[in-house]
Design a protein around this nucleic acid. Sequence first.
DNA 1: CACCGAACTGACCGCTCGGTCAGATCCTGA
DNA 2: TCAGGATCTGACCGAGCGGTCAGTTCGGTG
Lengths: 179, 179
Amino acid sequence: MVRIRTRDEILRVAGELFTRYGFKGTSLHDIAAEVGCSKATLLYHFAHKDAILLALVEPARQSLIDLVARLAGVDDKGVRDAAIGGFIDLVLRYRREVALIYDVTPQFLQEPAFVRVRELTDALVAGFAGRSADPNDQTAAKVLLAGIAAVVIDDKRDEVELRPALVAVARRALIPGKD
Amino acid sequence: MVRIRTRDEILRVAGELFTRYGFKGTSLHDIAAEVGCSKATLLYHFAHKDAILLALVEPARQSLIDLVARLAGVDDKGVRDAAIGGFIDLVLRYRREVALIYDVTPQFLQEPAFVRVRELTDALVAGFAGRSADPNDQTAAKVLLAGIAAVVIDDKRDEVELRPALVAVARRALIPGKD
DNA sequence: CACCGAACTGACCGCTCGGTCAGATCCTGA
DNA sequence: TCAGGATCTGACCGAGCGGTCAGTTCGGTG
C-alpha cells in the first residue's frame, strides 16, 4: 500500500469499526488487523486512540459549527426550514460521523472538541423547533434530530432520493398548523 | 443493606451506568463500586456481565414481543395508531431499557435473546409505516422510532405530559394526507 | 553511494478487564 | 444453640487493553 495513504486508510477502517462495534468495542488491535499494519503504526500517525476518533469526526464537527453559525443569522420565520435543510445536508454528507458524534458525546464531554457539541445540539434543537419555548415543540425537534442521525447511516439510498424524504417527514412533524 | 435487595440494586446501578457510559464503557468494577459490594458479589447473582444486561432489558424485550404480537391482529387501517400508541407506552414504561436495546443490539446479534430484536423492530417499522411498501414511509417510520427511543430517556417530564406530545409528533410525521 | 528523515514493527510494559475460588459471614429454621 | 444454605469477599488468574521504544526498512536528495 502506498504509504501516504495509510493515515486515510486508518481513518476509513476506524470509522467503520467504531460505527459497528462502538468506540469502546473497537481495539487498536482490531483496527491494525483490518488495515494490515501494526498498532505502533496507528500510534505513529495518531497520538492516541482518542485522537483517531477526534480526527474522524472533526470535519462533521466543523460543519456543525458552521451550520449553527449560519442559523444564528436567520430570522424566526425561516429558521426551521433552514435548520431542517442544513442538518439533513450535513447528515447526508457525514452519515457515519454524525452517528458517532451522537454515540460518543456523553463519554467525551470533558474533551475540548466535544465541550461545545451540547451547545451546538441545543442550537439545532432551537432551530428545528422554530425557536419556540414550548416543551412539546422542543421534544418534537429532538425526536427528529436524533431519529434522522440514527437512520441515515443504515439507509442505502443515495442523497438525491433520501433528502426529499427526510425533509418531508421533518416538515410534517415540525411545521405547525398542519394538524 | 438488606441482602435480598442486592440483586435489584445491581440492576438499578448497572442500568444507570450502561446508559450513561455504554455497556462496554462500564466495568464490573464500576458497578460494584457504585453498589458498594465486590465484583464477586455481582457474579454471585448473575452468571456473567452479559447476564446483567440481559436481565435488565428482559421486561422491555418481553413487552416488545407482546406489542408486536398484538399488532399482528390489527388491520391495515388501524395498525399505525395502534403501533404509535403501543410503542410510546412501552418506551415511557421502559425508558432506559429501550434505549439500551437500541444501543447494544448491533453487538449482541448472536445472543438468543437478541436474535429476534431485529424482526421485532422490523415489525414495528411496518406498523409505524401502516404496512406501506413505500421506502419513504419506512424511512419516516424508522426516524420516529429511533428518535422517540433516544429522546424519551432524557426528557424529565412525566408520562401524562409527554405521551400526548409524542403521539402528536408521530401522527403528524406518519399519518398521510396531511401535507 | 551514502545519509537522513519518514514510516513502520515486534517485543515488551503496566494496567484493567471479566471471571474463579476457598474461605468467611450472615441468616434462618429446627 | 447449632447446622446448613445463602450471600459475600479478597486474592488471584489469564487475557486483552492502550501505549512505548529500540531497531529496521523505505524513499528521497545531494
